[in-house]
């Protein structure tokens, strides 16, 4: 029975340690986050009653747009996110327009001068996605004025 008592002791120490390290992990996690965001756990004067159920998830798509990045949802989206938003914003992609050849030359430029890695078999996926979704739109030498917000001007 001495053996059983010893076992219990070990179990108790084991649970105690588990609890201790578990709490330590939570505490250190909280502290690390406090370093990242100093406003964490600094309670504002007003009590916030809002709840945030309808949050934007990392991979939510709405009306064909990946909400987190603004990319169009299409084949190759995830490959594009992982390879193209590491160094720069997705906005730098979505505001540009080029055909396949143009996108390849941009990729080459980034590989030669900006430390972009070899994309391997992902390159064709990425280029196809970009040329299809962010291809060249034909326009003239001067566009019409568009999206004008009309308002009454009071002199």
């Amino acid at each position: 029975m001495e053996n059983q008592g010893f076992k219990n002791k070990v179990k108790r120490i084991y649970y105690g340690l588990t609890l201790f390290f578990g709490l330590l992990l939570i505490l250190s996690g909280g502290l690390v986050y406090k370093m990242v965001d100093p406003s964490f756990l600094t309670f504002p004067n007003e009590v916030e009653t809002e709840t945030y159920v309808d949050v934007v998830g990392f991979d939510n798509i709405e009306n064909g747009i990946h909400l987190e990045t603004g990319f169009k949802d299409d084949e190759g989206l995830q490959t594009v996110i992982v390879n193209c938003t590491s160094c720069h914003s997705a906005k730098l992609v979505t505001q540009n327009r080029a055909n396949k050849e143009g996108w390849i030359s941009i990729i080459r430029w980034m590989q030669e001068t900006q430390n972009l890695w070899d994309l391997g078999t992902n390159e064709v996926v990425i280029v196809n996605y970009l040329a299809k979704n962010y291809g060249i739109e034909e326009k003239g030498r001067r566009d019409n004025l568009e999206n004008v917000e009309w308002y009454d001007l009071k002199n």
């Binding site: 690390v32 945030y52 949050v55």
Partner: peptide, 18 residues
Amino acid sequence: KRRKFIRNTFLGTAASLI
């Protein structure tokens, strides 16, 4: 909202997120 979401998530499950 995103920041609050992340903050709230961290509050609950900091360890698991890390």
